[in-house]
Amino acid sequence: MKKLALMFAVLSVSTSALAGIETVSRFDMGKDNWPFTREEMMLSCEKGNVLLAINDGTLVQYPLNAAAEESIKAGRIKGVPIDKMLADDPANPGHKKSLAPIIARAEKLCN
């Protein structure tokens, strides 16, 4: 029921039509593929291939691609830069973990 309530809240936060949404976790993706500092995030694909990661605790939206960044800059949706949510990459000191596995998972929601 909590997941359903969160989904409806996200729908009301976003101004564009939502094509897909999914909750993913470190457990689902595997420790090596998990780029976030949180254990769980929601992913969404909105109209126009706008890919977002959403903090399921605060409902803050983070852009995953250029289309999402542009939508935020244009004021069509609310969001903040994703840098604050990214974990450091222990294999590459001074860099953050790659978003590639998360972006690939979010892109599947667009279909």
Rank of each mutant, 00 (worst) to 15 (best):
L52N: 14
I72D: 06
L52F: 12
E46S: 11
G48N: 12
K73V: 09
L64A: 07
G30W: 01
A100W: 09
N65L: 03
P93C: 00
P81Y: 10
I102P: 08
G20R: 06
G20A: 06
V60F: 03
K96E: 06
G94P: 07
V50T: 14
M42C: 07
L18W: 12
S16E: 14
N65F: 11
L11C: 10
L6I: 11
C110L: 10
N65R: 12
M29P: 02
G94L: 03
I102F: 07
V60E: 12
G94T: 11
E69Q: 14
E70D: 13
L52P: 06
D88V: 07
D32I: 00
V24E: 01
I72E: 06
A67F: 03
D83S: 12
K78R: 12
A19P: 01
A53H: 05
T58G: 00
A19N: 06
L4A: 11
F8Y: 14
V13T: 13
G75Y: 06
F36A: 11
S16H: 04
T23C: 06
I54Q: 04
K2P: 03
N92C: 10
L59G: 02
A104D: 12
V13L: 14
L59F: 10
I102V: 15
G20E: 07
R26N: 13
V80W: 02
K47V: 15
R38E: 15
M1I: 13
S71Y: 09
E39V: 02
P101L: 02
T15V: 06
F27L: 09
S98F: 02
V60H: 05
S25R: 01
I82E: 07
K108L: 11
A5F: 10
K108T: 10
D56M: 08
F8A: 13
I77C: 02
M42V: 09
N111V: 04
K96P: 04
P101M: 02
K31Y: 09
V50L: 09
L59P: 02
L109D: 09
I103T: 14
G30D: 01
V10L: 15
D32S: 14
A67G: 03
Q61W: 05
I82D: 08
E22W: 00
E22C: 03
L6W: 10
L109P: 09
L99G: 04
T58D: 14
A100V: 13
A106E: 08
S12E: 09
D89H: 01
